[in-house]
Amino acid sequence: MTELTVRLTVNGETVEQTAEPRMTLADFLRERCGLTGTHLGCEHGACGACTLLVDGVAVRSCLMFAVQADGLSVTTVEGIAAADGTLSPVQAALRDCHGLQCGFCTPGFVMSITALLRDNPTPTDEEIREGLSGNFCRCTGYQGILAAVRVPLLTAAPGDVRSYENGGREISQTFRVTGGTSD
């Protein structure tokens, strides 16, 4: 099959590569761009591991062909931390709340949470659960991930102790990372 040229912006940089039309955007990023942060779990839209932003909108990169992203701007998990490696508030909160174990699902969660908090900076518990229902985690049992999304944590200063309700239980957590609001 003939390969087509795909020109797009990935994490702010222009990329030009060829791809067969049937190559998904996820495979393109991993195999053509060497960006293996985008993970593939199910490859048919169910698990959310491959979530990334296309023109700022959170989508499944296993359900889009690379040729469809021609001319568009893609943000992967590699584009979320600062250039010097400082974690984004979402990433830092996930680390601090034990929101990951094996880490396989984490890139997808980082992208979904980043989009979720950008569009709704003060989500309710229910909105968080609904917003993350499209991302599967086989390790954590989700409680640490839910805790990481809690806005009080994301806006806290280091050393702050925040209490919040999660699943009907009162939980206290000491905040250890530098605070900051979600971008």
Partner: peptide
């Protein structure tokens, strides 16, 4: 609409 899949699905 909110009953359809997840927000990432509904975005496309």
């Amino acid at each position: 609409t909110p009953l359809i899949g997840h927000f990432q699905i509904r975005n496309r």
